[in-house]
């Protein structure tokens, strides 16, 4: 791929990452709001927070900007870019596992029961789709 096309595709991925990351935050607030309202059924997807991995493109964008700026920027990128990229990915993976665990503990404490989501027939992605119900799984 030539550099110009690669840069266009890179920018597109950066822009697409915005709604994807916003969606992950939106899901978090939706679940919390459902707990506060004490809804009968709370839909919950344990894999949603892996969507935060899309933010790696923003980190790459910043690294590219710093590296192009001047000599000292290029030296900074040479020294620290790998650390930053790998550290960011590890941090996101830890968050993606801790956040659902934390939310599920809160939901369980409110007395909800975990049920399989009947809308989910085929899944290739990480995690599972769960419906938390106060009244049990029979009526779902």
């Amino acid at each position: 791929m030539d550099q110009k096309s690669a840069q266009i595709v890179f920018v597109i991925f950066n822009l697409l990452a915005i709604p994807v990351v916003i969606f992950a935050f939106y899901e978090y607030f939706q679940v919390n709001a459902a707990m506060v309202r004490k809804d009968e059924v709370i839909p919950f997807d344990t894999g949603t927070y892996y969507l935060l991995l899309a933010s790696i493109f923003w980190v790459m964008w910043v690294i590219q900007y710093i590296g192009k700026r001047d000599e000292s920027g290029a030296r900074f990128v040479d020294k620290y870019a790998n650390f930053i990229l790998i550290g960011w990915v590890i941090g996101i993976l830890v968050l993606a596992n801790l956040v659902p665990y934390y939310l599920q503990e809160k939901i369980h404490k409110l007395g909800y029961i975990a049920c399989d989501d009947p809308r989910e027939i085929s899944r290739i992605a990480k995690g599972a789709s769960i419906l938390y119900s106060k009244a049990g799984c029979a009526n779902l």
């Binding site: 791929m1 550099q3 690669a6 840069q7 595709v9 590219q64 870019a81 990229l85």
Partner: peptide, 17 residues
């Protein structure tokens, strides 16, 4: 994504990117 990042300036030079 892999091809775009591999061909982009600066980040393309990071082997694992």
């Amino acid at each position: 994504a892999g091809l775009a990042v591999g061909s982009a300036a600066v980040i393309g030079s990071i082997a694992a990117a």
